[in-house]
Simulated scan of single mutants.
Amino acid sequence: MLIVHHLGKSQSERIVWLCEELGLTYELKHHVRDPVTALAPPELVALHPLGTAPVISDGELLLAESGAIVEYIIAKYGDGRLMPGPDHPDYADFIFWWHYANGNFQPNMGRNMILRRLDVPAGNPMAARLGWRLASAFALIDRRLGDVPFLAGKDFTAADIMTVFSLTTMRYFMPYDLTPYPNILAYLQRIAGREAYQRAMQKGDPGMPLLLT
């Protein structure tokens, strides 16, 4: 049995969503953040040395890191879905956006979040540079979504699953106004219309308002 360890308002929502998109049978185990530190609880820390979510177990396997988990689940259970192969015309675009999600975009948001929490003055050269890089990242995504309905092209893929967290739930930690990015906002409405996304968010974070605007 595939078991998904989920921490509220975390990147583990990607794994719940993926399982719903693939129609998999899985067990969802909820973990609650420490009320003081907002960090993972001891039982999640004890499960894996990283002490973060997501973590899955699949028989004897224990695996962390959302990108690794998504790739593992698709390779084992996906039957060719959500991850186009090398012969697909959208393969190169898929590979780019798949890696961009956690290789560039999410870390970019994280660095800016830390600077905000440190209350670094806006005129600070590092803050200005990182702010520019983040605005450029949003602009890049917006331009892409003005040309195609989904990041890899015409079809919804795991690249979308990897990216949407940064555009939505991450904004609970790093507020960001999406008004200048109409194509991203239209894209998020397409995502909101996916039944698998609706089921995943209701199962993983019931009652949490979804930041889709």
Rank of each mutant, 00 (worst) to 15 (best):
V4Y: 05
H5R: 03
H6S: 05
S10K: 01
E13R: 14
W17P: 04
C19M: 00
E20P: 00
E21I: 10
E21S: 12
E21K: 10
L22G: 10
L22W: 13
Y26R: 06
E27F: 01
E27R: 15
H30T: 04
H31W: 14
V32L: 08
V32C: 00
D34P: 02
D34G: 02
P35S: 07
V36D: 11
V36Q: 14
A40N: 11
P41A: 07
P41K: 01
A46S: 13
H48A: 08
H48D: 12
T52H: 07
P54Q: 08
V55D: 04
I56C: 03
I56A: 08
D58V: 03
L61T: 06
L62Y: 02
A64Y: 06
E65C: 04
E65V: 07
S66D: 02
G67A: 15
G67C: 11
A68M: 07
E71R: 15
Y77S: 07
D90T: 14
A92P: 03
D93M: 13
I95H: 14
W97H: 05
W98T: 08
A101V: 08
N102P: 02
G103W: 09
N104Q: 15
Q106C: 12
P107W: 07
I114Q: 12
R116S: 15
R117A: 06
D119M: 15
V120Q: 06
V120M: 01
A122W: 04
A122T: 13
G123S: 14
N124M: 02
N124R: 04
M126F: 12
A127Y: 11
R129A: 13
G131K: 07
W132Y: 12
L134H: 07
A135T: 12
S136F: 02
S136L: 05
F138I: 09
F138W: 14
F138A: 04
A139T: 15
R143D: 12
R143C: 02
R144L: 07
L145R: 10
D147F: 10
P149W: 13
F150K: 03
A158G: 03
A159I: 05
D160T: 08
V164D: 02
L167A: 00
T169H: 08
M170G: 01
Y172E: 06
M174N: 12
N183E: 15
I184K: 07
I184W: 09
L185S: 14
R190K: 14
E195Y: 01
Y197P: 05
M201D: 00
Q202R: 12
K203N: 02
G204Y: 03
P206T: 10
M208A: 11
P209C: 02
L210N: 01
L211E: 05
L211G: 06
